[in-house]
Simulated assay, not measured.
Amino acid sequence: MTIQFILLISRQGKTRLAKWFVPQPQKERQKTIREIAQLVLNRPPKLCNFLEWRDYKLVFKRYASLYFVACVDKDDNELITLEVIHHFVEILDRYFGNVCELDLIFNFHKAYYILDELLISGELQESSKKTVLRVVAAQDQMMEEGKDAAAAKKTTVF
């Protein structure tokens, strides 16, 4: 299974996270995001969470006010892709403590870091939630130590 890209789109159509695993020009990315947002947001909730789009499949799931959209090859398994999306949401939930859209707006760098720990080149890298959370916690600790060292250096007078 190879994910082409992952998008997090709000109900208002705003992109909250976009991760591309295949190179694409910026103009094409923007066009793609607009097109996909329109398709997903206008889809009735009773219909299935899979759409054929161009030569790919869109697999999406709505959690609260966000749509998590993954684009995969036509012959990839949709249910596995849904499972990867759900896995990502569960990790975000554990990290932020009931994640909401504002968490992703103000801590987008953390969401990208978690996604990078989870997926590499569109392939699932780590299936253990505990391992991903442990690595993210270690990164948070390093950031705090760096801030403390910078603050100590700033207050030291020569």
Rank of each mutant, 00 (worst) to 15 (best):
V136H: 00
S127R: 09
V89I: 15
A149D: 07
K130D: 15
I33T: 05
T156C: 09
R94H: 14
I114T: 01
I80S: 15
E78W: 05
L92N: 04
K27P: 11
H109R: 11
H87R: 14
E123A: 13
L118V: 11
N107W: 04
N77D: 13
V40Q: 01
H109A: 11
V99K: 04
G122C: 05
T81M: 13
K74Y: 11
V84F: 15
K110C: 10
C71K: 00
L118R: 00
D73Q: 13
A151G: 03
M142P: 04
I85T: 14
C100H: 12
L51T: 01
R62L: 14
S121T: 11
V72K: 01
R134Y: 11
V157M: 13
V157N: 10
V40I: 11
C100Q: 14
N42I: 06
V132R: 02
L41P: 08
I120T: 12
G122Q: 03
Y113P: 01
V89Y: 05
E101D: 09
N42M: 08
D148Q: 14
I91R: 01
Q24I: 13
D55R: 03
L47A: 07
G122M: 04
T81G: 10
Y56A: 08
V157C: 11
D73T: 10
R43V: 05
K129R: 15
L82R: 00
I33G: 02
D103H: 14
K61A: 14
Q26E: 14
Q141A: 12
D55L: 06
V40A: 04
A64V: 15
F96Y: 06
Y67W: 02
Q26K: 15
Y56G: 07
V69L: 03
T155F: 12
K27L: 14
P25M: 04
F108D: 08
K74F: 10
N77C: 12
E101F: 03
K153L: 12
P45H: 07
E52Y: 03
F96H: 02
R34T: 10
H109G: 05
F88I: 15
E144W: 07
F106G: 03
E35K: 04
A150T: 04
Q141G: 06
G97H: 04
K110I: 15
E28H: 10
A149I: 08
L102F: 15
A37E: 09
W53P: 00
H109W: 09
K129F: 09
N77L: 12
L124Y: 02
D73M: 11
E90I: 08
D76L: 06
K153S: 12
L41R: 07
S127E: 12
F96M: 05
Y56I: 05
K46V: 08
A149C: 03
L124E: 06
L41C: 04
K154W: 11
L92A: 03
M142I: 07
K153A: 11
S121F: 06
Y95T: 02
I80A: 15
A111F: 01
I36Y: 01
V69N: 02
L104M: 14
Y95V: 07
